[in-house]
């Protein structure tokens, strides 16, 4: 019991948190773009499932890992386009259409799995790829630089998303469309084009999030593989106040607490398992409540835009 928090334990926990946070990051960063432009896509989990299956299927049949990621991205993109078509072009109620997309992904991914594979199998996914030199750094090396390629990708995505949203004209347009679509429209920014772009991008990243589960972290596919992970990702977007860096922080805290609760159980601390598994969720709710006081969502979030002509 006295060696509960040795250095190597902490390193293990942090490495574990980095892995666990990967699918959340892809999905939540993608969702951040959509929500910043005013579209709430609740279909993330369904898109992740379709991405997870597509990637798994390619790797199962051909062993081609890159092809798996590409197909997952494409399938995610198409589902993002579907969501954009329903919520932007048809201006359907966003919450309901997102749930429709989720249920479609949940059902369709299982149907395809039943018809094309039909039993639980494992594949060889992305191997751990230590980064030369960096992986030798004490403490940080094993935590950050001994992961697989899709894990690295998720963390590289964060500064890119930050840069696009805060330092480019495109980012400015996205935020303008999410805050005041009428004004943006008056200034010649196409609201629907921006929203199509962000929702498709979000779909693509959700597809990759699914692939990170099925061919990098778990290397398996079964019915409802994501188990609601996409909904946690949406909560993390709120948690992070629609800012990529804070979404990263939120994902890491949630994942670290999850890794910690597993560890606490494994070493046999006398805490009931029901309480332990609840902690990451309780923490998320608490932070959400606090952050609700602190930041304001994009003004036009979940409001369809219809031009007055």
């Amino acid at each position: 019991m006295e060696d509960l928090f040795t250095g190597s334990v902490l390193i293990g926990l942090l490495a574990s948190a980095i892995r666990l946070a990967t699918p959340y990051l892809y999905a939540a960063i993608g969702e951040t773009f959509g929500q910043r432009s005013g579209v709430l896509n609740l279909g993330v989990d369904g898109i992740m499932l379709m991405g997870a299956f597509s990637a798994f299927y390619v790797v199962f049949k051909t062993g081609d890992l890159v092809g798996g990621v590409l197909l997952a991205a494409l399938v995610g993109l198409l589902m993002g386009l579907l969501m954009a078509f329903i919520s932007v072009t048809l201006s359907a109620e966003q919450g309901i259409s997102g749930i429709g997309v989720y249920l479609f992904g949940l059902g369709m991914s299982d149907l395809l799995f039943q018809k094309l594979i039909n039993n639980v199998q494992t594949v060889s996914g992305f191997p751990v790829a230590p980064i030369p030199l960096l992986s030798e750094i004490p403490v940080l090396g094993p935590i950050l630089f001994r992961q697989n390629v899709l894990v690295y990708g998720a963390y590289i995505l964060v500064p890119i998303a930050w840069f696009v949203l805060n330092k480019t004209t495109l980012g400015l347009k996205i935020k303008a469309v999410g805050e005041n679509p009428e004004a943006a429209d008056t200034l010649g920014v196409s609201v629907s084009r921006i929203r199509y772009f962000t929702v498709s991008l979000g779909g693509m990243l959700s597809g990759i999030a699914g692939a990170s589960l099925s061919i990098a972290l778990l290397n398996v596919f079964q019915f409802n593989l994501t188990n609601g992970l996409g909904f946690i990702a949406i909560a993390l977007v709120y948690f992070g106040g629609w800012r990529p860096t804070w979404v990263l922080l939120g994902s890491l805290i949630f994942s670290f607490v999850n890794a910690l609760q597993i560890w606490v159980q494994v070493v046999g601390l006398p805490i009931p398992s029901d309480i332990a598994v609840m902690t990451p969720y309780i923490l998320t709710i608490v932070v959400l409540v606090i952050s609700a006081q602190r930041v304001r969502p994009p003004s036009a979030l979940s409001k369809a835009y219809e031009r007055l002509e």
């Binding site: 666990l20 398992s273 332990a276």
Partner: peptide, 11 residues
Amino acid sequence: VNYTGSFSDVA
């Protein structure tokens, strides 16, 4: 021993 609190949480 640990319990994940779910029958289906593969991750």
